[in-house]
Amino acid sequence: MGLGRGSAMVLVLSLCFLVLHSEMAHAATYYVGDSGGWTFNTIGWPKGKRFRAGDTLVFNYNPGAHNVVVVNQGGYGSCKTPKGARVYRSGKDQIRLSRGQNYFICNYVGHCESGMKIAINAA
């Protein structure tokens, strides 16, 4: 039994919706630093966790004492903020992970160097 053009289009659109919806349904929310929040020595926090593109990281911190900066690999390694980097300052930042490597630092003087940085690979 064949499908008409209209029926085939509805079937294709329905399948696309299901695939997109299932991807969104699997997205997880992670609280960086767990109950301790985004603070010093969080560099090891991602260890043992499996991240996916679309997952959300929640950075909870005192906005008068810290921030979150999305950096590239060079900025992560050097603890320097690259030109044009996105800086978050709310104290309750929610950042969606992109596929591949994602790097975050606090760029207050000495904070990144004290382990206030994370590198996350999202599948």
Rank of each mutant, 00 (worst) to 15 (best):
G48N: 11
L3G: 03
F51M: 04
A28T: 06
N60F: 00
E23G: 08
K83D: 12
F59C: 01
A28Y: 11
Y88I: 06
K80F: 05
F51P: 02
P82T: 06
H26D: 01
T39S: 15
V69Q: 01
C112E: 03
V12W: 12
E113L: 10
E23Y: 04
C16P: 00
G44P: 05
A119F: 02
G44S: 13
G37W: 08
R89Q: 09
A119V: 06
N102F: 07
S98G: 07
E23N: 11
T81E: 01
K47A: 15
R89L: 10
L57A: 13
K83T: 13
G75K: 06
S90V: 07
G33T: 05
I43E: 11
C16W: 09
V69M: 00
L11M: 08
G54R: 04
R50C: 13
V109N: 14
G33I: 00
G48D: 01
F17L: 14
R99Q: 15
G36E: 13
G115R: 02
L15H: 06
V68Y: 02
F51I: 11
I95D: 12
P82Y: 07
G77A: 09
I105D: 04
V68N: 00
G36C: 13
N60M: 06
A53K: 10
A123Q: 14
L13V: 02
Y88R: 03
G115H: 00
G75N: 09
Q101K: 09
A65V: 11
C16R: 04
I105E: 01
S22Q: 10
R86I: 14
G33Q: 11
N62A: 11
S22P: 03
R86E: 10
V12N: 07
A119C: 02
R50K: 14
G4N: 13
M1H: 13
L3Q: 12
I95C: 13
G110C: 05
G77T: 11
G6R: 15
R50P: 00
F17E: 08
G75M: 09
K83F: 11
Q101N: 13
N62R: 05
V58Y: 05
T56P: 09
V109C: 09
V87I: 15
